[in-house]
Amino acid sequence: MLVFDALLAGALIWLAWQATHTPGLFRSVISFIVFGLLMALAWVRLEAPDIALAEAAIGAGATGALLLSALGRLAVTHEAGTPWQERPDLYFWIPAGAALLGLLTLAAWALPTPGLGDDVRRVLPDSGVANPVTAVLLNIRAFDTLLEIGVLLLATIAIWSLGRMPMPSAPAVRSPALTALGRVLFPMFVLVSAYLLWRGSHAPGGAFPAGAVVGAGGILSILAGAQPWLTGGVRGPWRILLSLGFATMLAVAWGVMALGQPFFAYPPGLAGLIVLVLELAAGLSIAMSLVALYLAGQPPDHWGPEAARR
């Protein structure tokens, strides 16, 4: 297994170099996709299956689709970039990177050794779930998750403020195989997503991978030429779903205060139910923001044939 780890680490460093320093953009994108794939394996070796799951869903899947479709819209340039030997700014960046790495190593060294694992395990029976990661994300540190969902919402708002979706949503070359694939695979995406959401209460899973998987399913069906029934109008369902996660979390945070609890402190008997509701709402919002990020602009008020071909 030591050989495995060494090979994995070597391949990761090589791919990181390739992703940032190859002349062709397409090669960089492919290197980045493979980097995400191997990173998922690295998280498995570090015994962090939750992060491996998120990396597999977001890093290897959704990011790859985002980068590839962005590449498809870029003007093709053949400039190779400056070779690294002729870049004087590297004399600044290499020492700066080394200093940052050193500081991070020092910080990791100075972390208290048993960590917070024992504290989390102690309060786990009251948290309403059996998986410590879900307990931290949606109960103990739910405020952090609220801010994360807020960042996703802000990113979507920023992209929508740039204008309407700039591209035809359907592929340039229509293939019957693609349509059939979309029809067969989309239910699988929804099923796996529901499974991950259910698993989240007692094993690695939860809102983030579940939302990413169903969002990836949405991207796949748009690529296959499907027209979403969700519209981007002012009172359209898309906006409601986008803000659902943030709104539900805030409502719960204040709602428990009406029951005499502090901000975001769930009543002990209701904790499991609250976590489930929050996971569902957050997962839906994450999925919708992923699809919105992929569309790179505000979706039309009415999806018609002209919107798909524009």
């Binding site: 290897a60 899947g61 959704a62 790859g64 689709a65 590839l68 479709s69 695979l185 998987v213 796949l220």
Partner: peptide
């Protein structure tokens, strides 16, 4: 499941 997405894109 998600390997299909990259190749379809």
């Amino acid at each position: 499941l998600l390997a299909a997405l990259a190749v379809v894109t």
